[in-house]
């Protein structure tokens, strides 16, 4: 099922806690991601970036609002339907990698196929291994890989099912500078080759500059969406202007 828009969020509200301790992190949040777009989502800690990512990945139901991914409204789905949709149409990359320790690299990559009770496509696995610089590592287990390699396996897993949307939540958070840079280049390259939209949550201007656009989250909603020009300095300056206006 195709759509011009990979992700459409309209009037999304979400809060945590109960009673007097209730905290509203997203207030009337709206965002659109075109097919094949590469957008970074920035904001200070606790601003709701990861929360929106989880909502977009059908991992949490919103309090209010609507989220449509690849033409399907995920907020109207039950848990089972949303899970199956996520399996086939959304790829998620986490800061902590979140690989299955008891499966080898190839099995981790083809996880969605196994969950769909299908035989893994070994050619696709091999392609992804090669694309992500993991050739020859198919039989290794996660604890035999470096942090950068593990994160690349997570990216390969996210790409396996050819999803319409990839959500990356601080993917470089646990990587050293070199590995982080390498991962960013990979994401940029993949975005150029594939028709998959990428929404990348980060607070790092260098990582955000990898994307084509950056959305700034403020007071629970999108304050601005701007091109990054792939310039970390520009992104950094705009970040400071957005969240620390008193700074020169």
């Amino acid at each position: 099922m195709g759509s011009e828009k990979a992700l459409v969020a309209e009037g999304v509200c979400h809060s945590y806690g109960k009673g007097g301790g209730r905290c509203e992190v997203l207030k009337d949040f709206s965002l659109t991601l075109e097919k094949g777009a590469f957008m970074a989502l920035m904001g200070p800690s606790g601003s709701g970036k990861s929360t929106f990512l989880h909502l977009a990945g059908a991992l949490l139901p919103p309090g209010k609002g609507k989220i449509v991914v690849d033409g399907r409204e995920i907020t109207a789905m039950g848990d089972g339907e949303a899970t199956r949709f996520r399996r086939r149409n959304i790829g998620i990359v986490f800061q902590a990698f979140n690989l299955v320790e008891t499966l080898d690299v190839s099995a981790n990559i083809s996880l969605s196929a196994r969950l769909d009770h299908k035989a893994p496509d070994s050619a696709r696995v091999a392609l992804l291994l090669e694309t992500l610089g993991l050739s020859g590592k198919g039989k290794k287990f996660p604890d035999e890989l470096s942090g950068g390699e593990r994160q690349r396996v997570a990216v390969a897993r996210a790409l396996y099912a050819k999803p319409a949307l990839i959500l990356a939540d601080e993917p470089t958070g646990n990587l050293d500078v070199h590995a982080a840079h390498s991962l960013c280049e990979i994401l940029k390259s993949l975005n150029g080759k594939l028709d998959t939209a990428i929404l990348l949550v980060t607070h790092d201007p260098m990582v955000a500059a990898t994307a084509n656009e950056v959305a700034f989250l403020k007071d629970g909603r999108i304050a601005a969406v701007e091109p990054t020009s792939h310039d970390p300095a520009h992104v950094s300056r705009r970040y400071l202007e957005m969240y620390n206006p008193a700074q020169p």
Partner: peptide, 16 residues
């Protein structure tokens, strides 16, 4: 718990 959570994140239903 973590393994099961990862599987759920990757699309395993409660039935799994």
């Amino acid at each position: 718990k973590k393994t099961l959570a990862i599987l759920r994140l990757n699309g395993m239903t409660r039935r799994g």
